[in-house]
Nucleic acid binder design. Sequence first.
DNA 1: GATACCTTATGAAAATTCTGGTGATCGAGG
DNA 2: CCTCGATCACCAGAATTTTCATAAGGTATC
Lengths: 224, 224
Amino acid sequence: MKILVIEDEKLLADSLKTLLESKGFQVEVAYDGETGAEYALLGIYDLLILDVMMPKLNGYQVARQVRAKRCTTSILMLTAKSAVEDRISGLNAGADYYLTKPFDTRELLACINALLRRQGKQVDELVFGNTALDLDTCTLVCGDKSVRLSAREFDVMRFMLQAQDRIVSKEMILARVWGYDSNAVENHVEVYVGFLRKKLKAIGSNVRIEAIRRLGYHLEVEQG
Amino acid sequence: MKILVIEDEKLLADSLKTLLESKGFQVEVAYDGETGAEYALLGIYDLLILDVMMPKLNGYQVARQVRAKRCTTSILMLTAKSAVEDRISGLNAGADYYLTKPFDTRELLACINALLRRQGKQVDELVFGNTALDLDTCTLVCGDKSVRLSAREFDVMRFMLQAQDRIVSKEMILARVWGYDSNAVENHVEVYVGFLRKKLKAIGSNVRIEAIRRLGYHLEVEQG
DNA sequence: GATACCTTATGAAAATTCTGGTGATCGAGG
DNA sequence: CCTCGATCACCAGAATTTTCATAAGGTATC
């Protein structure tokens, strides 16, 4: 689970980082809105924690910018402003939750869990067509047959399943699975899609990974 | 959009119903936790608004019961209890948002919008006539028929749909889709307009791409 | 050191995209 | 109303790009 904290108060930002890392999250920090928005748009985070009052771009602007680019990462807004109007602006700008400082750390963690749960990233299996991906055992299951996936295969498969009906580009898969700063190339994705197709067929799944030229891949249920 | 309100204070429940219906939602009300949980488990609602203090089953219990049955309807908890512990219990019981009474109606509506937005129920699409361009799957949809567009076809179609009623010149399309510095020629546009017309006809769309001599192209809805 | 996994490389295959040409259509001007 | 030039539609095949499948070399792990 990757979380991006966008917060200009260094003290708070760093204590957030420490808190969240102690709970097993991967955390990165941006200290102003502009770099925050830039990071966020990579689309590799599961959650943004976003302060409102910041230099360069404020939190509302960051949220709007992120949503305008059709980035669907969950946003938790965190701010000293407690007026109702501010909460409304935050939610309308695209935030998913609004918490006012000072906040209780247990409440923050409960919010984070609620948001991640809602993303369907905490369930123990992802289902598509007649096939399920068991997140505990990294196994593809179809009827009474099943096959274990390697770590990479699993990451790629999970990302595609989470995208649901949307088309996922190879860049997105690369950024998410290999990391945006790795030097992996698109052929890696192609090879792993090949592996996955083979394993899907082996268990008799009706799920097909369809290639869409220039755009990426797309999951489909085979009709027949 | 269907909303279920579970609230024992009849006055509040009914005013919520009125408010939400005035915003175009379909609303049903349950006046205690037991019947509320029963209704909720039908799985036909897009959102539950759930009071905590209620006879028979309280809000936490309802939420837990709903989640235990793997029902993923969004839950907005609404209560007079404002202690942090209560908010944490609510979120951990499976709620997606926690609002304390008395609440501002505009804030309530902003929350509801945020929750429904997160459900991704509204697909991203451009609509014209009886036809829609699904931006997630790059597909033209008309009734129950649909056809996938190639990357170029999609770019051209999107540009025209975004132009709405305006006439778009071939230069504009070239600049926008192929890039102002490419060496593509106007015939490219003509060819792709041809492709699009064929696909529009194939799905029975009433959208026509009309050529306007010397000026460019224009979308029209065929009258019949 | 055997096994599984990840990365890199390659050529074949497939689909999209581009090209040039031909015939159809339109509108202006006589 | 007819002619002519310009514009547009359409087609078939070429060129290019993208994807697939496979193999082989590295690396980590037990």
